[in-house]
Design a binder for these strands. Structure first.
Length: 740
DNA sequence: GGTAAGAGGCTTTTT
DNA sequence: GCCTCTTACC
């Protein structure tokens, strides 16, 4: 057997050495699916004589793509970068940049993100005089996004019968799409829809890709949308060399148009498909898997499977039951501090349902001086000053981008006020052109006063100058630098002596540094802008010895020794959204997705899982009473640590007992439910294991011993231990198990 | 045309 | 509670 496959188990081996035809790999959490994909790439190249550039592997996040790239490189060495590994969206960008003109997408297109979408939709709603009490910009956006995730344009979009706003939304979608085109812009959805339509309607383009690419792999298949599925189906074509890897239990993006049915119907779409199940889990202890299984087995419509592990037993689950979210965060921070004596801090993650929940946790960690990092990749690029600078950069590439032009035409202040802007806009609407055409190309005199005309003219010349830099091929660094200075942004912040002004200036300089770095890596300005647009929330890497804070969604695909999941309450997890307005009815599909989200959270943990909950929680300006999550009630009691089990004396109440106040409404009154008594002792489950001189520890090779001294903390903490054998050694804490 | 204060909406999750 | 957008006033 090839040495490449030796390290794999039987199923993994079968999957990794699959050559041609469709294959569905049902890969449970922690079953080594990335390993399988990377080994298959290596196997195809080394053993099957496939050339590197014939392989396309699509992942969900840039981080996952990066991870895969580096692991493939390890297996294959030089040349590995020829394998095309990217996200669906990045693949779309690349294909559209190459051939998008066939479908009316110019090569210099800019990518509008969700807030650009929103402002565009707001403008359209305003211009069309739509009554926004029923049709809000956000609902329009989500309906457009949803239609696009199904690959549907305005004419084809589904409208529910009896939906009074449907036709209006369709018309807004139409205008929205027209506005994107006249701006030379695409949104995230277009990156997929336009790519598919390009491949479908231009056989020469499709054939070119099919000649070049022959083997396709899709990771996280359970989270692909119909349009994404269609994209790979088109590329794979009749050869059907398509391998998809997924886990229906981890489908958590239904709200974004992902369709679990993709995974359930793959076998129908490809009758010749082989199916391989990976059920051995290499990540978690049995205790954690048992807990996860207790949650997921109640999920409707799943492909039956049960993970198993060789890691028998393991620490029991801990429960932090707090009176409110502040106390929950404090206890969690305290627990993290204790744990970081024995676990490297970057092996601890705190997960929560919504981003808004991070704040209290951050406060608590800061109070204890525990280093942490909130994983929210986009936050830097969401800063106003960065968005402003980005708008200049995008205009330098494509001056027709109205959203960008409107954003900065008066930023920094240059005396072009709303009246002037409105006049320009109506001129643009009349001519059916971009604003840039109005202020630069049009030879008609503008209906503006003398002063306003002068200012607009000078603004147009500024943009033209930046655009010329791009045309004559200036480097990314240069365009960023010139944009910063000539736009007046730097001057505006320099004159602002406040702390905030200084910080904003620093952020701009930071972006300049990024540009310089990327330029060294061979990026053009367009590449840099693409990266900025496509960077995802989960893409940020946690650097150094820091506890990671992120949403459950962002944690998908990651693993940690210790996972603390906070807010395991009704209306937080499952989220209140699951319920209809009155909270009396719940949407079974939404509930099932929350269940899978809970499962994803649990299965991130290798060795220790801590659950947190608060009796009351501050939500959107009011304090709400919360009850323990139903998911908690589904856990077998023996999986909970003794103190967690005994202290919050939780009772299972069936039927009539199950009454719970929450926001003054009854929550799932007919269901089995836990009633928690919160008046218990708050000491954490295993407080006594906090290492201190005199305590006992165990080392896997040296045996048991007594701590004599503790030096440092966190990853580098060392204990001086006198082992029972008589020897005294200084040992890194992370190699020791603290007994008491 | 610019600024400051007030109103109103919002928080599910993200490429 | 916080952020964004609107409005009233300079």
């Amino acid at each position: 057997m090839s040495a490449l496959l030796e390290s794999l188990n039987v199923q993994q081996r079968a999957a990794a050495s699959h050559l041609e035809g469709p294959l569905l790999i049902l890969a449970g959490a922690g079953s080594g699916k990335t390993r399988v994909i990377t080994h298959r790439v290596a196997w195809l190249v080394k053993e099957a004589g496939v050339s590197l550039s014939e392989i396309l592997a699509v992942t969900f996040t840039n981080k996952a793509a990066g991870e895969m790239r580096s692991r493939v490189a390890k297996l294959l060495g030089a040349g590995a970068e020829e394998v095309w590994i990217s996200t669906f969206h990045s693949a779309g960008v690349r294909m559209l940049r190459e051939h998008g003109e066939a479908v009316g997408v110019p090569p210099g297109f800019v990518i509008y993100d969700d807030s650009d979408q929103l402002s565009l939709i707001k403008r359209i709603l305003k211009d069309s005089g739509t009554d926004t009490s029923f049709i809000t910009p956000r609902t329009v956006r989500s309906r457009i996004d949803y239609a696009k995730s199904c690959g549907l344009g305005p004419d084809a979009m589904d409208i529910d019968r009896g939906d009074p706003t449907g036709e209006e939304v369709r018309e807004i979608y139409r205008r929205y799409q027209a506005a994107l085109r006249s701006s030379g812009a695409v949104d995230f959805g277009d990156l997929l829809v336009e790519t598919v339509s390009m491949l479908r309607n231009h056989s020469a383009v499709l054939d070119a890709y099919r000649r070049r690419l022959r083997f396709f792999m899709v990771d996280e298949f359970q989270d692909t949308s119909p349009v994404q599925y269609e994209l790979v189906r088109l590329l794979a074509g009749p050869a059907e060399n398509l391998v998809v890897v997924g886990d229906d239990d981890q489908s958590i993006y239904g709200w974004r148009g992902a369709d679990v049915r993709n995974i359930l119907s793959f076998e129908t779409d490809y009758p010749k498909a082989r199916v391989i199940r990976l059920e051995q889990n290499y990540r978690s202890t049995q205790v954690i898997l048992d807990a996860a299984h207790a949650i997921i087995e109640k999920s409707p419509e799943r492909k039956k499977k049960r993970l198993w592990t060789e890691r028998r037993g393991g620490d029991l689950l801990e429960l932090i039951a707090a009176k409110d979210e502040v106390e929950e965060a404090r206890l969690a921070a305290f627990r993290v501090e204790l744990l970081s004596n024995t676990v490297p801090r970057n092996e601890i993650a705190i997960l929560y349902r919504t981003n808004a929940m991070s704040r209290v946790v951050e406060d608590a960690l800061r109070a204890r001086r525990v280093p942490y990092q909130v994983v929210r990749g986009r936050s830097f690029y969401e800063r106003a000053e960065i968005r402003d600078l980005t708008a200049y950069l995008r205009l330098a590439v494509n001056p027709h981008s109205d959203a960008d032009l409107l954003r900065i035409i008066n930023t920094p202040r240059r005396g072009i006020g709303s009246r002037t802007v409105e006049r320009l806009r109506s001129a643009g609407d009349e001519a059916g052109t971009s604003l840039w055409s109005v202020i630069w190309d049009s030879h008609k005199p503008l209906d503006l006063g003398q002063a306003a005309s002068r200012r607009v003219r000078s603004f147009a010349e500024l943009i033209r100058a930046l655009h010329d830099l791009v045309i004559k091929g200036s480097s990314a660094y240069e365009v960023v630098k010139e944009s910063m200075i000539r736009s007046g942004l730097v001057a505006a912040f320099e004159s602002d002596v406040s702390e905030e002004g200084r910080e904003r200036l620093e952020n701009l300089t930071e972006l300049l540094a990024v540009a310089a770095q990327r330029e060294d890596e061979g990026y053009s300005l367009v590449d840099l802008l693409d990266e900025m647009a496509l960077l995802g929330d989960a893409d940020e890497k946690v650097e150094g010895e820091r506890v990671a804070l992120m949403t459950l969604h962002a944690a998908k695909g990651l693993e940690f020794d210790v996972v603390m999941m906070l807010g395991v309450e009704e209306r937080t997890l499952p989220h209140a959204r699951v319920f209809t307005d009155t909270a009396a009815f719940e949407d079974p599909e939404a509930l099932a997705e929350e269940r899978r989200l809970c499962y994803v959270g649990f299965t991130r943990a290798r060795s220790k899982l801590v659950l947190g909950m608060a009796r009351t929680r501050w939500v959107m300006g009011s304090r709400q009473v919360r009850g323990a999550s139903r998911f908690l009630g589904e856990l077998p009691a023996e999986l909970l640590g003794e103190r967690s089990r005994a202290q919050p004396r939780y009772e299972r109440a069936c039927g009539s007992l199950g009454r719970h106040e929450s926001q003054g409404v009854e929550v799932h009154p007919s269901k089995e439910e836990i009633i928690l008594d919160y008046s218990f002792d708050q000491r954490p489950e295993v407080e006594e294991v906090a290492p201190r001189p005199g305590g006992r520890v165990r080392h896997s090779l040296l045996g048991d011993g007594e701590i004599r001294r503790v030096d440092g903390f966190g990853h580098n903490a060392r204990f001086e231990v006198r082992f029972d054998s008589g020897s005294v050694k200084r040992v890194l804490a992370r190699y020791l198990q603290v007994l008491w």
